[in-house]
């Protein structure tokens, strides 16, 4: 019971610390800030406990169990956070259709709201800024880093039986 309680307490402390820190100073790179916060806070808590004469009295196996529980939920939260941070276009479509009620939503209305804009250009700019692709005239090719990622995802897709998505 104490391991489960410790794991949950550590997660709650990290979440509370995040809410407070976000109000004090919103970071530029949210995911990076979350990874740093969730990685360092448990270590900080353990260090403070040790400094005040309360060393963690637990076996390596139990400590690893608490660490694995905490890490798994911390990473799951960070994944979910990206959906909290940026509104999903798919969910925005669902919300608009729901708002239309039983009368439904015409195709034209969805096109007007979601079928314009330069979404691909924005995504492409992110890939270019990240150093994964380069442009030479009209041709787009992968950088060495981009090739590594592309090959990784291609291999993962073949291994896990996933078709070309997007």
């Amino acid at each position: 019971m104490i391991e489960l309680g410790t794991g949950i307490l550590l997660l709650l402390c990290s979440l509370c610390a995040q809410v407070v820190l976000w109000r004090v100073s919103l970071p530029r790179r949210h995911t990076h800030a979350l990874l740093v916060l969730f990685a360092t806070l448990p270590l900080l808590i353990a260090g403070v406990a040790w400094a005040f004469g309360h060393p963690l009295a637990t076996s390596p196996a139990l400590a690893a169990r608490i660490g694995l529980f905490y890490a798994a939920y911390a990473l799951a939260y960070i994944v979910i956070y990206s959906a909290i941070e940026n509104e999903s276009p798919t969910l925005a479509i669902v919300a608009l259709v729901a708002k239309a009620g039983p009368a439904g939503c015409a195709d034209a209305e969805l096109v007007e709201r979601f079928g314009r804009g330069t979404a691909m250009a924005a995504r492409f700019a992110v890939l270019e800024r990240g150093g994964w692709v380069r442009t030479e005239g009209d041709r787009i090719s992968l950088t060495a880093e981009g090739q590594s990622y592309a090959r990784f995802f291609e291999l993962a897709a073949q291994l896990f039986g996933i078709r070309l998505g997007g």
Partner: peptide
């Protein structure tokens, strides 16, 4: 989540198409 990303992510699809 990792599988879902491979299925739905346009950026990943773009990289694979360029490859």
């Amino acid at each position: 989540t990792f599988l879902n990303l491979n299925i739905t992510s346009l950026r990943i699809r773009t990289l694979r198409e360029i490859l």
